[in-house]
């Protein structure tokens, strides 16, 4: 029983990490040429970084969307954890033994 549980957790964590990495691989599209995001204005010699094309711009939007979605989900989970540990603390669950 314990082993099945551990296997399940290991698989889930690996799956989430792989999905996370995979999504970011899909999003951060490697540029073909060396001069990627720079628009060098010849007259001033100033380099202003910006996405090279619509593909990169979309990738950036997707990444920011994924990031904020993850942050929202994580905050949601953390609030549940906070409620739980506060409840346990007030029940003096932790006072006698160390976990």
């Amino acid at each position: 029983m314990m082993n099945k549980r551990r296997i399940f957790w290991a698989l889930l964590v690996i799956a989430l990490v792989v999905v996370g990495l995979g999504q970011s691989l899909a999003q951060e599209i490697p540029p073909e040429q060396p001069a990627q995001k720079a628009q060098v204005m010849e007259d001033q010699g100033k380099i202003i970084p910006s996405p090279k094309d619509i593909k990169e711009r979309t990738a950036i939007y997707v990444f920011i969307g994924w990031m904020w979605l993850s942050i929202t989900v994580l905050i949601f989970i953390l609030r549940a954890k906070i409620k739980e540990t506060d409840r346990l603390y007030h029940l003096r669950f932790f006072s006698q033994k160390k976990e």
Binding site: W9, L16, G20, S70, V73, L74, K81
Partner: peptide
């Protein structure tokens, strides 16, 4: 159940955090 609600929540927290940090690691 394979796991308790607490374990599920813990696992989800850890896993999703790992995924988010993984996507930061990529660049």
């Amino acid at each position: 159940s394979l796991f308790t609600r607490r374990q599920f929540l813990n696992g989800l927290l850890g896993g999703w955090l790992a995924a988010l940090l993984g996507s930061f690691l990529y660049p």
